[in-house]
């Protein structure tokens, strides 16, 4: 996985709560057997609306999505993370993420930065009033920064320590676990014999 330290990019406001993964990418777009090419399905239904943020020229090339609470609820589809990444997003900022979406983001290298709901509102206001508004997301210091001067928005964000470390180092999760092979084998040796198996022994 690619390392992530800090990213500064064009901010895109998504002023909705409960953006479930069916909205991020509808099921009919999940039929690919690759990890790429999902950008076409990103927010597919909403992109029919010419006013939708991703259809506005000023947000073209955006890489930091600022969304309402309960982002990524519903289906476990990691395709939702891939669709955001394939489109060009590096970071999603929200006041609350669904568990599975947050987990998938950490695995795939998308930063899910959780901030207070008031910070989301301030960021939206800043984006609304500032053409080309950019947000800097610093994973080292766990902070987001937007604007400058007395109105600068500078606040910390939450991300769990382990995910942060893996993203900073760009580590392969499976490789780390396979380093504990002896412990896995030892655990397996102690499993009760009545536990079910799917294949004849």
């Amino acid at each position: 996985m690619e390392q992530f330290h800090t990213h500064t990019g064009l901010a895109v406001p998504l002023k909705r709560s409960n953006v479930d993964t069916d909205q991020i990418i509808p099921a009919v777009y999940l039929k690919r057997v690759t990890r790429s090419g999902f950008e076409d399905g990103l927010f597919a239904a909403w992109r029919n609306d010419p006013e939708f943020v991703l259809n506005q020229e000023r947000f073209s090339g955006g890489s930091v999505l600022v969304a309402g609470p309960d982002f990524g609820t519903g289906s476990s589809r990691e395709h939702a993370v891939w669709a955001l990444q394939n489109y060009g997003f590096k970071v999603v900022i929200s006041s609350r993420f669904a568990d599975i979406f947050r987990g998938n983001s950490g695995k795939a290298g998308l930063v899910a930065a959780q901030v207070d709901e008031k910070v989301v509102s301030r960021l939206w206001d800043y984006i609304d009033t500032t053409p080309g508004a950019e947000i800097t997301v610093d994973l080292v210091s766990r902070t987001i920064t937007a604007g400058d001067g007395p109105d600068q928005i500078h606040d910390s964000f939450d991300i769990d320590d382990y995910t942060r470390w893996r993203l900073l180092e760009g580590l392969d999760d499976i490789g780390i676990t396979l380093g504990h092979e002896a412990e896995i084998a030892s655990f397996e040796a102690g499993r009760p014999s009545w536990k079910p198996v799917t294949l004849p022994g």
Binding site: S76, E78, V81, N104, D173, I174
Partner: peptide, 12 residues
């Protein structure tokens, strides 16, 4: 779980 985790469980 997501697909990365599916791979993790398959492998480990």
């Amino acid at each position: 779980i997501g697909t990365s985790e599916v791979e993790h469980v398959l492998a480990t």
